[in-house]
Nucleic acid binder design. Sequence first.
DNA 1: ACACATCGGCTAACCATGATAGCTTTTGGC
DNA 2: GCCAAAAGCTATCATGGTTAGCCGATGTGT
Lengths: 197, 197
Amino acid sequence: MVAAGADLADEIGFAALTMGGLAERLGVRTPSLYKHVAGQEDLNRRIAALALDEARHTIGAAIQGRAGRDALRAAARALRDFVLTHPGRYAATIGLDLSSPDDPVALAAARSLEPFSAVLRGYDIAPGDATHALRALRSIFHGFATIEAGGGFQWGTSTDESFDWLVDLVDLGLRARPTQQSEPPSPAPTAHRGAPS
Amino acid sequence: MVAAGADLADEIGFAALTMGGLAERLGVRTPSLYKHVAGQEDLNRRIAALALDEARHTIGAAIQGRAGRDALRAAARALRDFVLTHPGRYAATIGLDLSSPDDPVALAAARSLEPFSAVLRGYDIAPGDATHALRALRSIFHGFATIEAGGGFQWGTSTDESFDWLVDLVDLGLRARPTQQSEPPSPAPTAHRGAPS
DNA sequence: ACACATCGGCTAACCATGATAGCTTTTGGC
DNA sequence: GCCAAAAGCTATCATGGTTAGCCGATGTGT
């Protein structure tokens, strides 16, 4: 049922998703939905959790076997494709209340950054800068994808080209940064936990 | 009245802005508002236009007398400050319908990019890449500011530091890009019109 | 076979909000 | 003081989220 809501949101826009609309889509009366979700807020959060997990899996699959700029490119493209093909789902993930750290949505949000964390392992980032770098990647590609999905880029210039240009910009910036001196004594950060940013 | 709506949106969040709430704030009954705006949609767009103009002026003032990285930093900080101090106004500017090119909101949106266009004149960007670079700056700082304003950055790590790190990343990326060969024969792009992206 | 708990649906009703119609009051120029 | 425009009001309606309380189907333990 949450999946049906997510599909409907992708079709008509997340802001236009109503309990009545979803009930109609399911061939059911509105109050029946309350046997499955606690209300619209609950529905929205479940769609968000679904979207975050789907995005993580898709992006994770896209970077398999890649590293460095290839991985960055693949991850960024996978995110962009996800947002363009599932704008409603993705919109559900914006502006969530994440204050309860063990809430399923907050966990999904934290885990959704794992692929980007993996991408950063292909660059020479000082351990103390890991959070900054992760926040940077997230901001950058979230920003592009949401503006593009919202029709914010006017003009004829190809957004595909702009996107590739942006990926190159980020790759160059990550490399141009003064490299950290040799290997730190402590073991490299392991992957057992995606760092929430 | 639009300004009162913008202030209220900053206080309670743009999504929570209602005609009834604004009427109460103004000490007036709801239908009276319809003598001034055509409806909620119209109110939202007017708030968006106000916000875009205010942001443009604030960012424009911040980059006066600066160039290169200083200008980039100043512009990015001014945008971030604007979003953090006026989250409701800024949220009104997201996802606007810009399909009518001579609509006041579309004009304000196009003009709002002028300061970033000016910042880019401090870098050696090939003319054909101007739109890409402008879209990049917009995506990057929009992304960071909206995620931060929405409480999306968890953890204790300072968002101030992350922001400065991001600005450096962009500056380095813009400089590391293979430089265009010498001066183009045509005159440098003038400032008389901000390029909508 | 039967009692019954559970699940998932229903109708009816309520409340908040956006919107419109039509009337009244305020106000400012003459 | 007159009058038209500006700005307010009450009354009313539609939509959408939500709750309460009821009903039928299903499946299980005795």
